[in-house]
Design a protein around this nucleic acid. Structure first.
Lengths: 215, 215
DNA sequence: GTCCATTTTTGATCAAGATCAAAGACCAAA
DNA sequence: TTTGGTCTTTGATCTTGATCAAAAATGGAC
């Protein structure tokens, strides 16, 4: 395991944040950079009239904050209780400049994040409501799965959404009502089960994949 | 000016591409990375049934291609005649690993590109057709302006779109008809003029900015 | 358990933008 | 200048998802 992360870890300060707590505000002089140790957070952008779009969901080992000088264009808010390792921006920037391997890692992560953002642009620009919901369920299954590196595959089909219906809407560019109707429809078709508000069980992954790709 | 870029330049091969020519295909083992010297290109993703979303527009000095191993998730196509400086992916990757300053530069660019992608997610997820068109015109004005670093501001309000109506639609998540109607409306209001298919003249920038931010 | 506040679901209607269709403008080649 | 092909505009209608409204479910606190 890279030494850089250990040393960096010592530079940082561990901090717990509770569900709903906002860590970085849009427009803030971006004071901090942080590494997510535990929990899930959302990254969002707002318009002056209150419309909000969730532009990213952050999982353990991901970075949050905008390194290198600019103000943060995003608001970052915890979706679950979370544990962060926080750095002042200047300390982080200096450290990064001196440790090319960290910058390399950060570059790779940023490239991956860009790929995800663009995949989401395709979803927002071109997919129907049904396709969007199917895509979200598969994406959440995959990302929640990769963090808690399960050996078996069972639990991939059995997870808790860290988002409520409103937040799913804000992520998919849909209203809460449309989200609810589409989920109900998937349940009706037997593709998924929804034992309670947050919990999702995927019964027929391959049909869900078909749905996600074309109506 | 950084030496890295000069040395890198010697590693590369200059290549002209004509309008409409595709440089990288989605799903390709990403063989090349390139630096745009001249011209404008689009970065797009397609669905199996032919729906297409433009996820980025690339201007001179920007990079194209996906460094570090993965296959390219995008198709890159020239919107205007363009001049590229092309590297084999392995040559580029090796060079980058050995030149932290290049990686740093690349990281900054990628962070900026991510910011733009997320800004566009807000547009695609939440903005009305009118807001989208206004945003596009301002964005194009700004990006075309910054490359041909004009001292005065006159020409910011006077530029050629490198996109046709269909491509504007693919970028904004709208149909060609909606794009046309919204442009006609802006012309009717006197906010812009459209002397020919490609040319745009912004008459009232501040009203356009208002439009772009809230209906 | 009951009560209350919040979230979700369901239903009815509406509207923005898509789709279908045709006419008009533009431009390059002959 | 005429022609033919492509791109754009305009018009009529339709559909998806938004909006408005109310009922039902959920989950704490007591």
């Amino acid at each position: 395991m890279p030494d850089e992360l250990k040393v960096l870890g010592r530079l940082g300060r561990k901090q717990m944040v509770e569900r709903g707590q906002t860590v970085v505000w849009e427009g803030d002089e971006s004071l901090i950079v942080a590494n997510v140790i535990n929990g899930v957070l959302k990254v969002s952008m707002g318009m002056s009239d209150g419309r909000e779009q969730i532009v990213g969901v952050v999982f353990p080992s991901d970075f949050i904050g905008r390194p290198f000088g600019k103000e943060s264009p995003y608001t970052v808010t915890a979706l679950t209780p979370a544990e962060l390792c926080i750095f002042t921006r200047s300390a982080f920037d200096n450290f990064a400049q001196e440790h090319p391997k960290l910058e390399h890692k950060l570059l790779r992560r940023t490239l991956d994040e860009l790929d995800r953002a663009r995949e989401w642009m395709l979803l927002l620009g071109k997919k129907s409501a049904g396709e969007r919901i199917a895509t979200l369920l598969l994406e959440m299954s995959a990302r929640l799965g990769e963090q808690s590196c399960h050996a078996g595959m069972v639990s991939l089909n059995h997870f808790d959404l860290p988002l409520d219906r409103q937040q799913i809407g804000d992520l998919l560019g849909l209203t809460i009502e449309t989200v609810s109707r589409q989920l109900t429809k998937l349940k009706g078709n037997g593709l998924i089960d929804l034992p309670d508000r947050k919990h999702v069980i995927i019964n027929d992954r391959s049909r869900l994949i078909e749905l996600a790709m074309a109506a």
